[in-house]
Design a protein around this nucleic acid. Sequence first.
DNA 1: GAGTGGTCTAGACCACATT
DNA 2: ATGTGGTCTAGACCACTCT
Lengths: 242, 242
Amino acid sequence: MPNHNLENNNAPYSPPKPLYEQVKSYVLKRIESGEWPAYYQMPSEHTLVKDMGISRMTIHRALRELTQAGYLERIQGVGTFIAVRKKQRKMLELKEVDEVIRARGTRYHCDIHFLQTEPIESDAATAMDMRPGDSVFRSYSVHRENNIPVMLEDRYVNPDLMPDFLEADFTTVTADTLINSRFALLSHEHDLHAALSNAETHHFLELEDATACLVLNRRTWLGDEILSTVKMLFPGNRYRIT
Amino acid sequence: MPNHNLENNNAPYSPPKPLYEQVKSYVLKRIESGEWPAYYQMPSEHTLVKDMGISRMTIHRALRELTQAGYLERIQGVGTFIAVRKKQRKMLELKEVDEVIRARGTRYHCDIHFLQTEPIESDAATAMDMRPGDSVFRSYSVHRENNIPVMLEDRYVNPDLMPDFLEADFTTVTADTLINSRFALLSHEHDLHAALSNAETHHFLELEDATACLVLNRRTWLGDEILSTVKMLFPGNRYRIT
DNA sequence: GAGTGGTCTAGACCACATT
DNA sequence: ATGTGGTCTAGACCACTCT
């Protein structure tokens, strides 16, 4: 049997790493050093099995995980290649208002202006993938930080998917928190732009003048059905998304 | 040998899914239906091997991947448990303007209004972690879709970290694309709000009236040093972040 | 036909936790 | 002592690509 402890041979008390991790390090080291540049076809599984004296399943697991992590690209029947620099995706996390405000140590409060069943009108019906006139739950609320309105929320919920939405106690949890805690497999779709306040939003947000607002639309999917759509308005001078 | 094609037995032309994928579906179905709630100890690998007639390595791979994905928690010597609802982080990907526009099939173009070295003034110095008066590279450009300005970019770059920034050809690549292709280990910090256009931005964005703009600030770190800060203005009626 | 990666098995040994 | 998950092997069959 070959010696499988490929590293730290002279360092005492070295915790043994699993073989597949050692294979991953072996490959990563050659990628980082530039020995195996992008597009380079690295040795096949069979070759590594022979050269490293490690079984194919173990080699395969290592290469599969590196592929998953974006370091390699594998083509069946062809070979394994070093991936071009993994594209850096710039992600922004959209945190819940109530959590942000509470984390700041300021006072959070929410006024529910209405929470009711209504026939859905045309535009919202399209967004919810329902027919105009179908019954829909709707909530309309203002979220406040130290009593100053920082967000206006206009939400539609599909009654078939969440029949008890109207019974929830939104003084203690936000609709978002409720929905997230209820369902396991949600996916979200976002859309962001800026718009001026209009007469209605002006009133509910208690604005003095026409104000640039950040508009965040979110559609929440439960599997392949739309559970909820929500439009959130943040006055630009009162709230920043970080 | 048991029949391993656990699904679509009556649907013709069903593409056979790998066994480990079928095991994953089997487990996910029971999580979604609520049959296996959070904290529930699901059957052991040995039990699944017996019940499903599938080898342990295959079962193990399925459970390992579900663990990696956050659905399960495994404790050696104890068992496998359904994970508490993975906190659903709502992420928004900030794509590059030029890529978005090109993907839409519309025409992308960028005007550089200036690209120079200048002494950094107080506010920007704070943001860049430099001293006021230090030399800094600055670029000021307008990004257009079908010749209509959709984004105004005001960027500062640390000359020590990227001495050749001024030599780059920004008619073919954006500063963002250049920076991303140059460095491997960047991290980004974002900040988003809405604001009205002012006299200056009004002019460069060729706006008719005061317009609500989405303001996206980004700081890009190279290790523990700030490589670049940029303020991007998107007129709300011309561009949405999706 | 030869070489590649994708999957799967039936066993094995180990580390760990509980009883 | 028993049961759990973590790793590893030596084979096997398959689908795919290229020559």
